[in-house]
Amino acid sequence: MEVVDPQQLGMFTEGELMSVGMDTFIHRIDSTEVIYQPRRKRAKLIGKYLMGDLLGEGSYGKVKEVLDSETLCRRAVKILKKKKLRRIPNGEANVKKEIQLLRRLRHKNVIQLVDVLYNEEKQKMYMVMEYCVCGMQEMLDSVPEKRFPVCQAHGYFCQLIDGLEYLHSQGIVHKDIKPGNLLLTTGGTLKISDLGVAEALHPFAADDTCRTSQGSPAFQPPEIANGLDTFSGFKVDIWSAGVTLYNITTGLYPFEGDNIYKLFENIGKGSYAIPGDCGPPLSDLLKGMLEYEPAKRFSIRQIRQHSWFRKKHPPAEAPVPIPPSPDTKDRWRSMTVVPYLEDLHGADEDEDLFDIEDDIIYTQDFTVPGQVPEEEASHNGQRRGLPKAVCMNGTEAAQLSTKSRAEGRAPNPARKACSASSKIRRLSACKQQ
């Protein structure tokens, strides 16, 4: 084909351009004929944790799935940006308080904090938690009735009371019990989460009196709706648990309003109706937990002794299953770290194939690490110290990083047969305790 000078094309009309061969290198194709290559998922490591896909996002930050490269346990990490926390009232204080509380709590029905990582340079905090497959609110939203069968609701409620009793025994008032803060594992274990607005009572406090509340409006008791200066913290949790039980068994809320002012007005009056299909035992329990006067409201001991709580409820309806993943529609909620794991395991070791967030990740503290002497050669063979940054567990980050890069360049065919977990650990520049 004859090559045409581009400067001469402006002298031709459209018809003349076609005659000189423009149609031979300008093609129009339908979008259905285009085959897009999927974007390669680059592996990203935060300390010893391999990052997966997004699980959810809230006002405080994002939650992603991660894999512990040492234990191969599935975890969830809450990623918090200090810049964003400053824009939220009491944001930083709530996060630090939640970390302090979770560090000393150990119960099967309370979410466990596994690790805390802090990135000084990017001003990011990573709260590594045990993995929960789904939230209770997500399960309720997945069915038209917006409720659980009585047998399933009873099982979840009993676990909620177990976890709540443990928190109260530790002198902690949750203040925000609701389905949105109750998570579930694949085995059906309920976990109380989000202790950001919780309050730890003084060890020598005479009672459970509280003065502040930041919980969700629909789950607040009349004493808070009416603006009382002080109130019983434990009875606030009992009320919120009662509203939660009402919601998961009926699909409704005892109090509603077009806006928060109308909602608080209705809560302050204390008038509500219980659907007739709840039955006398459940209705009596709800009335005891939603008692207007805090002094007359049920205690956890009274809830445990109630006939509806103690009764064994046979399954009359099919239980609400864990819904498919909202993004991938995966009904099994498979591990989202698998594509990243395959990338590390299947590809040659190259620095361009993975990302390490930083050479140094500070753990379990908000301060910069200490310094240790770096050896410097002298005339008599002895070495003197220069400062060298280290990880919180004493690992020399720069030395590990250099060693990792040197190993990656060394030709050794046997290394390709290593397991995925050992490869992740070798790529991680800074081991965590």
Rank of each mutant, 00 (worst) to 15 (best):
Q7R: 11
E14W: 02
E14M: 15
E14V: 06
G15L: 12
L17S: 10
S19E: 12
H27R: 06
I29V: 15
S31Q: 11
E33W: 04
E33Y: 08
E33V: 02
Y36C: 07
P38L: 04
R40L: 04
R40A: 15
K41I: 04
K44Q: 09
I46L: 09
G56L: 02
E57H: 13
S59F: 03
G61W: 01
K62R: 15
K62W: 11
K62D: 15
E65P: 03
V66I: 02
V66K: 11
L67R: 03
S69L: 09
E70Y: 07
T71C: 10
C73S: 11
R75S: 03
K78Q: 07
K78H: 00
R86I: 09
I88V: 04
I88F: 04
P89M: 13
E92I: 00
E92V: 06
N94G: 05
V95Q: 12
E98G: 02
E98M: 01
I99L: 04
R103K: 08
R106M: 14
H107S: 04
K108A: 09
N109V: 01
L113Q: 06
D115L: 08
D115R: 13
L117S: 01
Y118C: 03
Y118F: 02
N119Y: 07
E120P: 11
E120W: 03
E120L: 11
K124V: 06
K124P: 03
M125R: 02
M127Y: 09
M127G: 02
Y131E: 01
C132Q: 14
D141E: 05
S142H: 12
P144W: 15
E145I: 07
E145Q: 09
F148H: 00
P149C: 05
C151S: 07
Q152V: 08
A153E: 01
F157W: 03
Q159R: 06
I161D: 00
D162F: 07
L164S: 01
L164H: 01
E165G: 03
Y166I: 08
Y166K: 14
L167A: 03
H168D: 01
Q170F: 04
I172R: 02
V173C: 05
H174F: 01
K175W: 02
D176C: 00
I177M: 03
I177V: 06
I177R: 00
I177W: 00
K178S: 03
P179W: 01
N181R: 00
L182R: 01
T185V: 05
T185G: 02
T186S: 07
G187R: 04
L190G: 01
L190S: 01
K191T: 08
I192N: 09
S193T: 09
S193V: 04
D194P: 00
L195A: 08
L201I: 12
H202E: 12
P203L: 09
A205W: 15
A206S: 08
T209H: 10
C210K: 10
C210S: 05
C210P: 08
C210T: 10
R211Y: 13
R211F: 15
R211A: 09
T212D: 12
S213G: 11
Q214C: 05
Q214T: 15
G215Y: 07
G215Q: 01
G215R: 02
S216T: 04
S216Y: 00
S216E: 00
A218I: 05
A218N: 10
F219R: 01
Q220V: 05
P221F: 00
I224H: 12
I224Q: 03
G227S: 12
D229F: 05
T230C: 08
S232K: 15
F234C: 06
F234Y: 04
K235N: 04
S240G: 06
V243P: 00
V243T: 09
T244I: 03
T244E: 00
Y246P: 00
N247L: 08
Y253W: 03
F255H: 05
E256F: 05
D258E: 03
N259R: 07
I260M: 10
I260F: 04
Y261V: 09
N266D: 07
G270I: 04
A273H: 05
I274G: 06
I274Q: 15
P275A: 03
P275D: 15
G276D: 10
C278H: 06
C278R: 13
C278F: 04
G279A: 06
P280N: 15
P281K: 09
P281I: 12
D284I: 07
L285A: 00
L285W: 00
L286Y: 10
L286Q: 01
K287E: 15
K287A: 05
M289D: 01
L290A: 01
P294D: 03
R297S: 00
S299I: 09
Q302A: 12
H306Q: 02
H306E: 08
S307W: 12
W308L: 00
R310P: 05
H313R: 00
H313V: 02
H313A: 10
P315Y: 09
A316Q: 13
A318L: 14
P319S: 11
P319H: 08
I322Y: 05
I322E: 07
P323I: 13
P324T: 07
P326G: 13
P326H: 04
W332C: 02
R333F: 04
S334T: 08
M335R: 12
M335D: 03
T336G: 07
V337P: 14
P339I: 13
P339R: 08
P339W: 15
L341H: 01
D343C: 12
L344Y: 05
L344W: 13
H345L: 08
D348L: 10
D348A: 13
D352L: 15
D352P: 14
I356F: 08
D359E: 04
I360M: 04
Y362E: 06
Q364C: 09
T367Y: 13
T367F: 10
V368T: 14
P369I: 08
Q371A: 14
E374W: 13
A377W: 04
N380K: 11
Q382R: 12
Q382T: 09
R384F: 13
P387H: 12
P387R: 12
P387W: 15
V390C: 06
V390S: 12
V390R: 11
N393L: 08
E396D: 12
E396M: 12
Q399H: 07
S401I: 12
T402V: 03
T402D: 08
T402N: 05
T402C: 10
K403I: 06
S404F: 04
S404N: 13
A406Y: 06
A410F: 11
P411I: 14
P411R: 05
N412T: 07
N412P: 14
K416C: 07
K416Q: 12
A417F: 07
A417D: 11
S419N: 13
S421F: 07
I424S: 11
I424M: 11
R426V: 15
A429G: 07
A429S: 09
